[in-house]
């Protein structure tokens, strides 16, 4: 690992150690934050006892479902919109504004329409994620070099062959960036919805633990979420970086 990487690990380790020390020394009230070691301990016990494992699986299942719907749906919509320049032009202001609007304000509307079930949560996950995928698909298709289309002409390739053999691989790095965003946005959308109001799920369990002053459980589950989110994002980031380097625009 590089020197910078080691320094980064040291910084994080020192931050955790400082938090641990201030909790143990009583600088931070035990009722506010518990020491990191206790969080980890609580998490291990919680996972072994299995009492909330079905809630955890439910939430991650919904995240995966929302991400898959967004990735496939966003790609399909992106391809369709790209083929219709006039529609695309009209949609430009919509895309520019979409992420500026706090779409969570529509979550209660979804609950009233679909009831307090998993459907509004999946929809919120898809709503936060799908537009990023559409934008990435449009970007990817825009950047397919002209010369590739000409090569296809020269070789008399059909439309489908051109799309599969030339356009798709050329757009792939952008599509992956979209996928990366879709996964992390779906994660945020699902967890935040569960937090505000949900019949079940990880967000609900954390919010219940908060209401019950059950700090051990609350911090254990927060730690779990942070670990999962960080690992997934780091993995996607690494693959993204690898693809970027291959197309020659990444950081060397």
């Amino acid at each position: 690992m590089s020197r910078v990487g080691w320094i980064r690990i040291a910084v994080i380790a020192i931050a955790i150690a400082l938090l641990e020390a201030s909790c143990r020394l009583g600088l931070i009230d035990h009722r506010v934050v518990i020491p990191p070691s206790e969080m980890a301990d609580a998490l291990v016990h919680l996972l072994i006892s299995g009492q909330d494992n079905d809630q955890i699986l439910r939430t991650f299942g919904i995240v995966v479902l929302a991400a898959v719907i967004s990735a496939i749906g966003g790609f399909a919509l992106g391809v369709i919109i790209h083929a219709l320049p006039r529609v695309r032009q009209s949609l430009d202001p919509f895309f520019a504004t979409y992420y500026a609007v706090p779409i969570f304000i529509f979550y209660p509307v979804m609950i009233v329409i679909f009831g307090l079930s998993a459907i509004p949560i999946v929809l919120m996950g898809v709503a936060t994620a799908i537009v990023a995928m559409i934008i990435a698909t449009l970007n990817g298709l825009d950047r397919v070099p002209q010369v590739l289309t000409k090569v296809a002409c020269v070789h008399r390739m059909g439309r489908i062959a051109t799309a599969l053999l030339l356009k798709l691989p050329a757009a792939a790095p952008h599509l992956f960036t979209g996928l990366k965003l879709a996964v992390s946005y779906a994660f945020i959308g699902v967890i935040a919805s569960e937090f505000i109001l949900a019949p079940a799920g990880l967000g609900r369990v954390i919010s219940d633990a908060y209401t019950d002053f059950d700090n051990r459980k609350m911090y254990a589950l927060m730690l779990l979420l942070i670990i999962v989110a960080t690992v997934v994002n780091m993995f996607l980031h690494a693959v993204d970086q690898h693809l970027a380097e291959r197309r020659g625009i990444g950081k060397a």
Partner: peptide
């Protein structure tokens, strides 16, 4: 430069974290 190189990935992972989970901590404080 060094702080930037060390800190950027940390900031990016914080950015992609669903921060709503940390709201109870803010409330406790």
């Amino acid at each position: 430069r060094l702080s930037g190189a060390v800190g950027e990935p940390i900031l990016i992972s914080l950015y992609t974290l669903p921060k709503v989970t940390l709201y109870p901590v803010v409330l406790l404080i």
